[in-house]
Write a protein that binds this DNA or RNA. Sequence first.
DNA 1: CTGAATTCCGAGCGTTTCAGTAGGATTTCT
DNA 2: AGAAATCCTACTGAAACGCTCGGAATTCAG
Lengths: 129, 129
Amino acid sequence: MLAMVELARHHGRGPLSLSDIAQSGELPLSYLEQLFGTLRQAGLVEGTRGVRGGYRLTREPSKITVGQVVRVLEGPIGPVECAVEGEATDCCTRSTGCATKEMWLRVRENILEVLDNTSLADFQVSSVG
Amino acid sequence: MLAMVELARHHGRGPLSLSDIAQSGELPLSYLEQLFGTLRQAGLVEGTRGVRGGYRLTREPSKITVGQVVRVLEGPIGPVECAVEGEATDCCTRSTGCATKEMWLRVRENILEVLDNTSLADFQVSSVG
DNA sequence: CTGAATTCCGAGCGTTTCAGTAGGATTTCT
DNA sequence: AGAAATCCTACTGAAACGCTCGGAATTCAG
């Protein structure tokens, strides 16, 4: 997430290399490479190789939500197995008939409310130069 | 959670044994024993040994929230390391100064809003006999 | 008093996830 | 030619999760 925020802050000024991001203290380079491979395949970023290369967002920061990033990197979102996005039909064969499931779904909605309504643009530094 | 709901539904009718709960299909007995050891030490349930023994809630179901149970069994609640209850002060030494932290705290509050405002009484079957 | 039912306790185990490393291949610019 | 970068895949170490196992202590019924 922090790396994506950096990328958003650099948006419009050409590609930003992972070594730049790594040096600003977020995460080790080799780990970033791995994460951005996934983000690229999901179409959130595009990479250009070579000397002046790096990654850039494929859309405006305001068009990329935190929820999208999380889903790409960690899969479907949910507080418990039975209330994860995508509805596993085999769960809740329990005796209580999952009285609790409804609650867990409420929890999930409360989570998504924030994640899906926050975009990378919301982390822009307000003091623009 | 489901086992606790069972216990709440049985509240006022003496102790309920873990083998009863296990047989109703929730979880294996030995695992339940382990979980309820923890719940007991936390003061949410009390156990009586022997033939007609079992566990019972130490308070009214309406006085025990889902949040309490979760905290006892899984520790402090939070969507990410940096936004967990109890505030680790050593986190967020990142370069972005954790622009994202505020958002994660909002996520946490949204989660707690449900968990801390739902009690075991809310899972009572409405068709009382 | 015996024996069954139950809680209580602590150690161990198999699987999965998380975060990260490692090594190398490919592309691109200077 | 060579440096800088992405790209790819496999591995690893630690921790957590869900669960098992063996046994001790307690309590009640007969």
